[in-house]
Computed example of a mutant assay.
Amino acid sequence: MTDFRAIRIDKDDGGARAAYVEMREAELMEGDVDLDVAFSAINYKDGLAVTGKAPVVRRFPMIPGIDLAGRVTRSAHADFAPGDLVVATGCGVGEAHFGGFAQKARLSGDWLVKLPPALTPARAMAIGTAGVTAMFCLLALERHGLTPRDGDAVVTGASGGVGSFAVALLARAGWRIAAVTGHPAEADYLKRLGAADILARDEFSAPGRLLQTQRFAAGVDTVGGATLVNILAQTRFDGAIAACGNVAGMEFAGSVAPFILRGVSLLGVESVRPRMALRRAAWARLAQDLDGDAIDAMSEIVSFDQALERARAIVTDKIRGRVVIDLGLRL
């Protein structure tokens, strides 16, 4: 049995603590596919798991990391064979099942997607749950029938992982984008991704009128709370907002006015459940719509030894874009 390194969260009477540990393959949880993990990524949810700031971990001990990319070493699943490059995002990985902050993983093949040929494992993790969620939002807006001809789009939390990808993907699809951020120093970064206007977070973070000046035909909200309420109040007739985050809180102290007086739609976007047909379509579209330079502009790669520190930093709003973890394995 081969030893491998992992970040593991253990819990006792003193509480939960995350630390680097050495583990054995026999300690991995059940699954029909074994992987050598080459890259993972740090998501806000991983930061919550590592710091314990929210109860996202559903069993202990737990290896966090809701994203991973690697090579199959053993498979009892009909869709995968040793040597396949695969990616996993969400599906309870890093919450209820050992995740990507480890050099080895054992997962259900039903949670895996073969890596599109246009993507390297590192770039797939630069995309990760953030990019998949942003693509789910874009697909939801397109299913709703919205196009760039309908008006401007807004993205909140634009300098974060999901927000950055939402800006880049909407821009690639032809939308004129207003990016909302609490980090004015990131204006040049957001404009390079495709944003036309940079709006201050403070404009949207306090309670406002039930209906406000119509500004946006569509949008992606990664924040929730009062920001989502204000964005909806500024959405045009028959527009829609895809909501996928709750950084500002789970409460929705809003009004039905935008829905019944302007026909605005609120589209909920969920990124945890498998829904593999949708995931495969999202990955194929991501590989088609994003070039390598765009992906690299939104990400940085850190060593595994830096991962725990950076996971703690993400919950303090100190990280821009995506942080990819190099697990030190060469595929």
Rank of each mutant, 00 (worst) to 15 (best):
A88Y: 02
A78H: 13
G99A: 08
L107H: 01
G94L: 07
P121W: 08
A126D: 07
A96W: 11
A88G: 10
A102S: 12
G92A: 09
A105D: 06
V113Q: 05
I127P: 01
G92K: 04
H77G: 03
G109D: 08
T89H: 07
L85C: 11
A126H: 09
L85N: 10
K114T: 13
K114G: 11
R106G: 00
K104M: 14
T89D: 05
L115D: 01
L85T: 13
V93L: 12
V86D: 00
V93S: 03
F80T: 02
G83R: 04
G109I: 07
H97T: 10
P121V: 09
P117K: 15
L115P: 01
V113E: 06
D110Y: 10
G109L: 08
A76S: 15
P117N: 11
G83F: 07
S108F: 13
F80N: 01
P82Y: 08
M125L: 15
F101P: 01
K114W: 11
A124D: 02
C91P: 04
H77L: 05
A124M: 08
A88W: 02
E95I: 06
A96K: 13
A124G: 07
A76C: 14
M125W: 03
F101E: 06
G83C: 06
L107T: 01
A78L: 11
T89S: 13
A76H: 15
H97R: 10
S108P: 13
A78V: 13
I127D: 02
G99T: 03
S108A: 15
P121L: 12
T120C: 11
S108W: 12
S75R: 00
A122N: 09
